[in-house]
Design a binder for these strands. Structure first.
Lengths: 139, 139
DNA sequence: ACTTATGCTTCCAGTCATAGGAAGGTCAAG
DNA sequence: CTTGACCTTCCTATGACTGGAAGCATAAGT
């Protein structure tokens, strides 16, 4: 199977598949003409990766998860640990975004949105004293 | 005022301030020795930028917002528009993360997390048929 | 006057997970 | 035998920085 078919079947762009080979996530064999040749197991890995990425796991997480997947003597605790860490990371992001959303929606509501220049949004951006804002922990 | 003080007072790293000059967001003057010299207005812009960034506005948004801020004849509708677009963007991200969170937390709950190899998390990652998963709209 | 330390400068490279595109080889169909 | 679709590698760009090297400037201490 060539990369085009692998892309079609896995749902990943060919570009991404080449990248995954580059960074050592997959190792498809090569045909005589130099084309990548994908076996069932390669395709399986690709769909695994696609699914893991769609759940927001980093490439590094994916590497770990793939290793655990291959390892028949793994402990499910190890997998759970990776997933829980990621879950915590997602939760932090959701909290951060929700906080932004809260502030921003207040500002948007307060803004008349007409042709006059007075704008509470700009006023907020301009007025905040550095030490007092919530800007610090966002990095 | 040198960059170190500007960094302290604005809460932004000196590196970031240099970067903002590089991309044309600010234009501090220079002292005789070649050091950047920050006026009150520069500092004001920096805190404005810091606040806008902490609300998740892109650099491009910041550029627009700064321009609107300078423009005394702006219409608040223009500002509101930028903010609303960003709010919609935040909402999309929250929805996406929440969807990930939902799936992932189910999987984590279902995983025993002991020393046995059986793991619903890996099973899910491995089993999904490409066309059927929710992987598509995440790009 | 000399050393040390801190602060400033520019420039180059790296991050993350790809995407875009150029230049060129391969293959099936008409 | 040419067209077009597919494949290859290699280089560059994204966003918003961050890290680090090499080299001046300045201030403090001895």
């Amino acid at each position: 199977m060539n990369i085009g078919d692998a892309a079609q079947l896995s749902g990943l762009p060919a570009k991404t598949i080449r990248y995954y080979e580059d960074i050592g996530l997959i190792e498809p064999s090569r045909s005589a003409n130099g084309y990548r040749s994908f076996r069932e197991s390669d395709l399986h890995k690709l769909t695994f990766l696609g699914r893991a990425r769609s759940l927001g796991f980093t490439i590094d997480d994916c590497r770990t998860l793939l290793t655990l997947y291959r390892d028949r003597s793994r402990a499910s605790a190890d997998v759970k640990h990776v997933a829980q860490d990621h879950l915590a990371c997602i939760d932090r992001k959701i909290i951060e975004l929700t906080e932004m959303r809260r502030t921003l929606s207040h500002l948007v509501e307060a803004c008349a949105g007409d042709d006059r220049p007075d704008c509470p949004i700009l006023a907020d951006l301009a007025a905040v004293v550095p030490g007092q804002s919530c800007a610090r922990q966002s990095n």
